[in-house]
């Protein structure tokens, strides 16, 4: 009695295991057959458009001396409206469950480890705009368990695949600049004027500034740069003749938390 029941349970257990393994094999074989299917070689090849702006490593120089509240607001509006970033409302705003790609802060928050004592009053309270640094050595990419966030080989932009992200938020813990946001809820109801040219996101995924990769692809500079009244300069950091390199050669610029070895691609003239 005791034994037959045990045998039954054992058999039942193995059967379940067998079904599980079987379905996995089916899944695997389906996967392989797809990989060798005739249209595998005809996967869409993305080519650069004629107007596309190209660079080896995109970078930005922020001239903080030219920033003020209204320019910062304009830049943020330009960025958030074209990227379908929801306007924080009600409870989500209260709980700081908001999305931001670019936002103004003060010098002491942008550069917490580079405190300047007795900083001139105007410099201390002048807005400093912060965004993803598109680090050359990005810790968020290192941390991501699915490669949903990755550094684009072509031009160094750190990008997100919203459809692969599992929402573990490891990248947010890894980012030393607080540049990433998480969709704590469905963002779509809070988008006032949806831009059909850029995907909206769903709840449960991480997002951040993409250096306007979608605009660069059609030959436009990032939206914030266009809205910045000349405070932001954008260009190829690996090209000695680019605007950004000329500016860096001329003016003393700093980066956020250089001691962490992430090599940000956003520079600040202070």
């Amino acid at each position: 009695m005791e034994n037959s029941r045990r045998r039954f349970l054992k058999n039942a257990g193995f059967s379940i295991l067998g079904v599980g393994a079987g379905s996995m094999l089916i899944g695997l074989s389906a996967h392989t057959s797809k990989a060798v299917s005739p249209d595998a070689g005809q996967r869409p090849q993305f080519s650069m458009g004629d107007k596309a702006m190209e660079a080896e490593r995109w970078g930005m120089v922020v001239d903080t001396r030219k920033l003020n509240d209204s320019i910062c607001r304009k830049m943020q509006e330009a960025c958030h409206s074209i990227h379908n970033v929801p306007e924080p409302v009600g409870e989500s705003a209260q709980r700081d469950q908001i999305i931001k790609w670019i936002w103004p802060t003060e010098f002491q928050h942008a550069f917490p480890s580079q405190e300047v004592e007795f900083l001139a009053e105007d410099a201390a309270h002048r807005p400093v705009v912060v965004l993803c640094n598109h680090c050359d050595n990005p810790p968020c990419v290192r941390a991501c368990p699915t490669r949903a966030t990755f550094k684009r080989e072509r031009d160094g932009i750190v990008m997100m695949d919203f459809h692969r992200c599992i929402g573990c938020r490891f990248c947010m813990a890894a980012c030393p600049f607080g540049a990433r946001s998480f969709n704590f809820r469905d963002p779509r109801p809070d988008i006032e004027d949806e831009n059909p040219d850029f995907p909206t996101r769903m709840r449960g995924v991480v997002e951040k500034c993409n250096f306007c990769a979608e605009r660069l692809a059609v030959g436009k500079k990032p939206a914030c740069v266009e809205a910045s009244d000349g405070a932001l300069t954008f260009g190829d950091l690996n090209d000695p003749d680019s605007d950004v390199r000329k500016l860096l050669a001329e003016k003393y610029a700093i980066r956020r938390k250089p001691n962490l070895g992430t090599f940000p691609s956003v520079f600040y003239i202070v």
Binding site: D96, I98, G178, F182, F184, R203, G204
Partner: peptide
């Protein structure tokens, strides 16, 4: 259904 917005986590305290 709603998302992790029903928790006390935030943009800053993500875990």
């Amino acid at each position: 259904y709603f998302g992790l917005g029903i928790t006390g986590m935030s943009r800053d305290v993500t875990w």
